[in-house]
């Protein structure tokens, strides 16, 4: 699915990622954890194509293609989905309009015809119920005036409708209360399948209580300093990050 090899990324002259290696197979869930400033968000941004970053070395291959060469919208149409840490408010553009524009772009990219208006509404309304959202959300402007929890739920709604292959969740748990966290997690869990992979970028172990990862990687100072199974997250919760950062410093 995704193969990251020796990836070095800078912002301006400042190196942020210093040699990331990561292999993600279909159906796997990988959690990327790490302290503030370790490069977690940079990793999710560079994978989704945000501008402002320079790749100085290394590669990221997605389904056999050079991911880093593609403009962001092509990545999205190829099935890469970034759930934003801070979803952007877009006044004047309704949710339902954006969803349809997005879905039709994907279909066109794959040589399919536009989605039928009735089928589309049936699909969207079904997903809205799944995420326990109000249908009125569909006709409101994208994220405008939404609470933190509503914004995150809206991200998962988009994910559920666009059915991506590689989902990158950037700090999805930040700003969520426990009830919203449960709903969002259930939404994500319902999307788990043998063909769909997840990269969850998170600071806290809490999210992993609800979405169980197959692998946990710890990012510190731009490198993966430790990888392990779900149990590694619990160890981090207990000990914090400093023992790993210290270990890296002394290595």
């Amino acid at each position: 699915m995704l193969s990251i090899k020796n990836l070095h990324v800078s912002v301006g002259d400042k190196p942020i990622l210093k040699g990331i290696n990561l292999e993600i197979k279909p159906g796997e869930i990988h959690a990327i954890m790490g302290p503030n400033g370790s490069g977690k968000s940079t990793l999710s941004h560079i994978l989704s194509g945000k501008s402002g970053y320079t790749v100085t070395e290394g590669s990221a291959t997605y389904q056999g293609k050079d991911l880093l060469e593609m403009p962001p919208e092509i990545r999205a149409r190829e099935g890469v989905f970034l759930a934003f840490q801070y979803p952007v408010e877009i006044p004047g553009v309704s949710n339902v309009y954006l969803l349809k524009a997005a879905l039709n772009s994907i279909r066109k990219h794959h040589g399919q015809s536009e989605v039928d208006a009735m089928d589309f509404l049936t699909l969207v309304k079904g997903k809205v119920r799944l995420l326990e959202m109000d249908e009125k959300f569909l006709y409101r402007a994208v994220n405008e005036g939404f609470s933190g929890g509503e914004k995150k739920r809206n991200e998962i709604l988009q994910m559920a409708i666009l059915e991506p292959k590689l989902c990158i969740l950037d700090e999805t748990d930040s700003g969520l209360d426990i009830d919203a966290l449960k709903i969002v997690s259930e939404g994500v869990n319902s999307l788990r399948s043998s063909g769909r992979s997840f990269v969850m970028v998170t600071h806290y172990q809490r999210l992993l209580d609800y979405i169980k990862p197959d692998f946990v990687h710890v990012l510190a100072h731009g490198q993966i300093v430790k990888s392990g199974g779900a149990e590694l997250a619990l160890e981090l919760e207990e000990k914090g990050y400093s023992w790993l950062e210290d270990a890296e410093a002394s290595a």
Binding site: S51, E73, F81, L82, F84, A101, I106
Partner: peptide
Amino acid sequence: LDEKSIFYLQSRCVDE
């Protein structure tokens, strides 16, 4: 135009 908004739409499959 806000570049963050443009990127958000691009990440939702919309060309620039």
